[in-house]
Write a protein that binds this DNA or RNA. Structure first.
Lengths: 191, 191, 191, 191
DNA sequence: TATGAATGAGAATTCATTCAT
DNA sequence: GATGAATGAATTCTCATTCAT
């Protein structure tokens, strides 16, 4: 069978799953998701054969969402630093604006439900970021770091920044600036 | 006298819980824990009245373990930088050596099962680290960062480093050095 | 449309609960009830969220059953004595005909599972009986008894009569007549 | 093996069981009983092989207690009416004074744990009462009631009276007098 | 295809009883 | 005998998934 065609129901389910997983974690019952989506319990399983499939689909959906937030209007021609700041600000801004999406994505990422293949597949969405890091390296702007470490640092510092803003949203801008300063200090060869 | 309550059974349960929670997350069944500890399902509950109590006990146990790894032989009289490096290396080394403990601790920390009071209590174990950060600030070695951000950065970069070492243990030393460089670059006013 | 919720399954469960509670008391396992009703263990909880809710529902059901047995064709215009006899005979006859219902109701009544509010609510079903007792008092047919004692006596003597008929059903009519004689002797100012 | 000789421990257990069964019903855990008796969980089972055996022993103990309360100083030579009143008052007084004993005894009586043989055995303790009822019958003081009904009425009205006194102890004497009046009215041929 | 009732394999406990000390 | 830790079957309830309508 092909995927059921009523796409708005599918999206309603993904949206509901975002809310529910953000609030209750991955072990939340599927019945809560279908209820939130105002869809019958059984119908959920016509859109996603299993809970695991729903989780995987949501993971991909959220990763696409995040990637497009980062990549849209990407200043491809600008300097490394400008692009870096773009990525960081967009990442954090997205995470703060869509707290539920971020929390759901985190819950999924921390679980073991998503296969490595799917993770790898979704990573391709962030090719622009990889290119940026490669440029930075080539231009000798970055410290000599083991492969892959810089992107992880970006992620770690961004996530940390979001958590802090969650707790104290009024000082969001401060955290955002400080976060980028820290990130640049962590990665750049010279400040 | 009755059969004496065997402390090694309690430890076996905590150890089993560490393994199980690290592998399957907190929602793993208690039956898996008792089985892993080669103890009957009912006996678990003579040592811990509820699953929550087991989780809390394990949390405290692991936090003490980590704190003592960081604090033992702490070079209290040394420079901020030396103490910083001590903390970072000990933290990462502990997390790599005891991957399961680290993952279990992470699972517990991310859940909401541990009460704020217990969290606060266990934080006191890390007073030495707080003092170090205060010293760094006072000596104007650190950037002007919003309160609490530096300790979160320490944690974020350390955890990131551990994750990388997990995936590629052979280059552990590289990651460790690079991690500390990044941390220092992130926090220090001057490199 | 989905499979329609089948009212006969709910009734089957109440019926099974009646049998099981009558025989084994309230602490009988819900699994025995679902088994008796030829329904899966889980389904019981789609009809009654908890065991307590099942017990309460059964209590109300049985009280309604008893009340309607007593109240149907109630000789509202007849003398106190005739009405008294009506109540007593109907009460006892119901309890003998539906021994299981009576025993289940007794088990539930003796437990503390049913809230006072629910008890009060169900008592309203027996308003006719209260009116009868009030009439008897007003017409000075009854002894001067502390408030509430007469209705308790009615209940006590009726229940006693039913227990005796249980043990020796063949002499049911004798017990019934004697029971009423005793009740009247107990309450009436003059025989 | 013979019965363990430390009788005071056995009595402590029976006493604890009385309190516990009165408050929580027969399904109360044995551990609560041993704890109340300040005796180890295991020791309970050296005095009573099973919980059922404990229940049976307690039943007999309480029945003896009640019987002796009724029978002591029994006015064997007095009139039927005097003896009747003696029995009734002693019964009710005992039940009010030893509310826990009464409630425990009721819990046990209502359960199916005590075998008919044991019930029959304990009934012999009340031979004096049976004799009284036989005398009353022979002297044509009593209505012509089916066999066994008068003793059940005595029990039913006495228990009802105790319940009322429980709820409103200040009017205990009123209830007691009214209860006896009702009993006599129920049983006597002439008032 | 949509619905939601039905299912049954777990889940966390509890507790009478046993048994090592 | 006394103790209380150990046991595991039993209990109430949950939830992903199926299936009759």
């Amino acid at each position: 069978m092909s995927r059921p065609r009523n796409d708005s129901r599918r999206m309603a389910l993904l949206d509901a799953a975002t809310q529910v997983f953000a609030k209750h974690g991955l072990q939340a019952p599927t019945s809560l998701i279908s209820k939130t989506a105002r869809i019958s319990e059984g119908s959920l399983f016509t859109y996603f054969k299993t809970k695991e499939e729903l989780v995987t689909a949501l993971y991909l959906d959220l990763r696409v969402d995040l990637a497009s937030a980062i990549t849209s209007n990407f200043p491809r021609r600008s300097s490394v630093r400008v692009r870096f700041e773009h990525v960081f600000r967009r990442y954090v801004t997205w995470g703060v604006a869509y707290e539920l999406k971020r929390k759901a994505l985190r819950s999924i990422t921390l679980s073991n439900l998503v296969t490595p293949a799917v993770r790898a597949q979704s990573s391709e969405l962030f090719a622009e970021v990889d290119r940026l890091l490669a440029d930075a390296l080539q231009q000798r702007l970055m410290k000599d770091l083991p492969a892959g470490m810089s992107s992880q640092a970006l992620k770690a510092i961004a996530e940390m920044t979001m958590d802090l803003i969650d707790r104290d949203p009024e000082r969001g801008d401060e955290y955002l600036s400080a976060g980028f300063q820290m990130l640049w200090g962590a990665l750049a060869r010279k400040p």
